[in-house]
Design a protein around this nucleic acid. Structure first.
Lengths: 339, 339
DNA sequence: AAATTCAGAGAAAACGTTTTCTCATTTGAC
DNA sequence: GTCAAATGAGAAAACGTTTTCTCTGAATTT
């Protein structure tokens, strides 16, 4: 059988007893408030640390109405977007002693409701909602909760605080990079038009290229990238000398298709992806230059914001767009390996 | 500014007042214990539900010493293994009202210690440790904690409960499948020999093939799969008619290399991967037949086990190996598309 | 009719903290 | 040498539950 040592937990009573003071004095000593002699304060602190006292967060939370706990709600099963966001949230909050409940609710409203209620019962200080696309909301209503809610990479309610990537900026980065290395016939191969991000990136692409270069809408898969190349090379007229792809999977499919046709990347066609999904981008041959949405930073800011709200600090509602970053690998030439 | 409606939270005092009973009676009514008239009990319950009462888990936990909260500790940044495990844990525990703290500690002992202490302060009922390989332990000592610890897909301490996949079983499944479809010259291309899983799979492969067919050790990347094919096809003697690869990335690299050489998969060479990492396995052309380690089920069992321990139910220590499952796609012929 | 059981319900303690209040003693000012 | 202020520390209430104990009547038994 598994032994827990059945160690009794050490409470402030033990500290008080060991230091020969009252519980209230012990508490005040440890929290650096109240009035007492320096010697007493130091002695209490030393004793507490010696016997390994750690205050019970449940008891503390009961009184302070702060549980130092927040919930991260997501419907992104794959974790493609959630993991970096989660990493950022956690990183920002661990220093404040805040732990994070992760709740994956798929697209199940009942499950979502379940998780939200469980979190509220546990008195979370706030909730961060995140998802897999910025123009869809989670299948659960978070609009009248007794705790602050911040949206990150998912659609929020009016008057809420929402963080998202600036996809237009990312697309502009990509296109301008391709133009800088001298490419002029840039084609945009991307996902389904009903994604807001897709339209936003396509618009930025059109603005940056100056004319309405062809935009090929499809799905988010490698095989669409592959097919798109077939389609482009089948038609007459000038062939592109660069591709800006809507995500790394499409880009990978396109790069593979080009290689199969004996077309050199990046010499004949330069390729830029989107997402910086390491597992795809770094394993493509050649590794993909791609746009990173800085989801970790997004998570960090969402974390700090929900903390601010929980502490009653005022935060202006609205949508905050965070800039993207171009990660240069070898699919455009330019800089050599960076990994 | 963001408005929280500053809704006062409803306590059992409100329920008692609204129902015209004492707090103790209200509590007993809601928990179906104590003695009182049926009418009283029903009235309290109705009132509670009407005014939307939900008990404060902090207060409850303070008394019962159960927080209905567990921690999941991982050093698998990518989430490749953690996400399915987490999904299983969460799925198994949500019905019991248990929420899960996810703590990604990378390989940083200080960060790990931080997170563990934060969780203990919050009185978690137990901790599940998980990681990225079964023969390494987390960079933090979990052996003398006041709460139960269960290990899942990471190395545990002596006398602990550890769940892991049965890699020998998985490898046997793969090889036997290849033999069933008539392949006789099966080569095993796999990862670094210092991984315990690698040795275990290789041993099972040797046992199943009956002789010491060649095992090619390398790294966990597509390019190694690619290189391995180059090496195999450069050397003299019989060419393999099947490959059993140590993970899906290697398998994908191998499949790509075969295609580039004009060798048909699965007609000339059948390929089986390992991991069933959707993003790799399903996007390979042809999609990979691969071994799934059933990490979600592993997580589910780990969750139920830590719950049992938290409730004081006895659990035998030891390593539990869970069977794998072969996911048939098209890289071996056999069944047609299943996705 | 007195003694016993039992149903129904409330009072109070407990969980581990923090915080406000109170009290006794010492210090400083006149 | 008296009085006000400051200092050091403890008592007690509070947070929202659950649980044990106690109390009051009424029903049942002798």
């Amino acid at each position: 059988m598994v032994d827990l040592g059945s160690r009794k937990r050490i409470t402030i009573h033990d500290v008080a007893a060991a230091a020969g003071v009252s519980i209230s004095t012990a508490s005040k000593a440890l929290n650096n408030n109240g009035r007492m002699g320096d010697e007493t304060r130091e002695r209490v602190k030393r004793v507490a640390s010696d016997i390994g006292f750690r205050p019970n967060a449940l008891a503390r939370g009961l009184l302070s109405k702060r549980s130092f706990t927040i919930g991260l709600l997501t419907n992104d099963t794959y974790g493609r977007f959630t993991l970096p966001v989660m990493a950022g949230v956690s990183e920002a909050l661990v220093d404040h002693g805040v732990s994070v409940f992760l709740c994956a609710i798929e697209d199940d409203p009942a499950l979502g409701q379940n998780h939200v209620e469980a979190m509220l019962d546990k008195q979370v200080d706030g909730i961060i909602a995140t998802g897999k696309r910025i123009d869809r909301s989670l299948p659960v209503d978070l609009s009248n909760l007794p705790v602050p809610v911040v949206y990150a990479f998912t659609e929020g309610t009016r008057d809420s605080v929402t963080f998202r990537s600036d996809d237009a900026h990312g697309a502009t980065l990509a296109v301008e990079w391709l133009q800088q290395i001298g490419r002029r016939r840039i084609v945009h191969i991307t996902g389904p038009k009903d994604f807001f991000s897709v339209r936003e990136r396509a618009d930025a692409y059109c603005t940056a290229t100056g004319d309405t270069e062809p935009v090929l809408y499809g799905v988010w898969s490698e095989s669409w990238g592959h097919d798109a190349i077939d389609r482009l090379w089948k038609r007459s007229g000038d062939r592109p000398d660069a591709l800006f792809c809507g995500n790394d999977q499409i880009a990978r499919g396109a790069v593979d298709a080009l290689r199969e046709r004996g077309i050199k990347v990046p010499e004949e066609v330069a390729v830029v992806g989107f997402d910086n999904w390491e597992i795809v981008a770094a394993q493509t041959r050649p590794p993909l230059t791609t746009v990173d949405m800085e989801l970790k930073e997004l998570g960090r800011q969402a974390g700090l914001t929900v903390l601010a709200l929980a502490e009653g600090r005022p935060v202006k509602p609205g949508v905050r767009k965070l800039p993207c970053r171009l990660v240069v690998r070898q699919s455009c030439g330019g800089k050599p390996s960076e990994d």
